[in-house]
Amino acid sequence: MNEKVDLTLTVNGQRHAIRVEPRKTLVDAIRDDCGQTGTHAGCEHGVCGACTILLDGEPVRSCLMFAIQCEGRDIRTVEGLANGNELHPLQQSFIDHHALQCGFCTPGFLMLAAGVLRKRPDIGDEELIDLLSSNLCRCTGYANIIKAVKAVRDGLAQA
């Protein structure tokens, strides 16, 4: 049962040929085997949302999936948000609105928001707060995170 299997994960468009046990969670594989440590494991039981990534465009908790389930799928993590040196609008907005302090939950919030705004650039305020309630932050009190995401949404609306 501890036999490792070969599989290829595609993280931010980059293919990683890895060898893991079936029980290896997606978050651990992304971090340990693909070397992308921007995705954080905050609770490993699916509540805090720090490990949120985009799987084929949908935000999911990467601690609640096994790497072996994700072969051939499009995995997007915080490392893939920026375009070279140009920050993603959400990244810049988080800086501008002081939407992070310790920064541990930040990648999860960024990926959650990126997934949401991609599908719903016009999402309403109430719904947005409800969606952002899926992730926990212990530093900011959330108001600045909400503002940062709203600002990007409003920018999209104008564009």
């Binding site: 971090r31 992308q36 440590t37 921007g38 995705t39 954080h40 494991a41 993590t77 915080v78 490392e79 948000l81 920026a82 920050l87 990244q91 988080f94 800086i95 501008d96 002081h98 992070l100 920064g103 541990f104 930040t106 990648p107 960024l110």
Partner: peptide, 20 residues
């Protein structure tokens, strides 16, 4: 002023204990 700490943290380049 904006924080000096932020750029690595928003790009996934932070280095927390588990990253070492």
């Amino acid at each position: 002023l904006p924080r000096l700490e932020d750029p690595p943290l928003v790009t996934g380049r932070g280095r927390f204990a588990a990253d070492i």
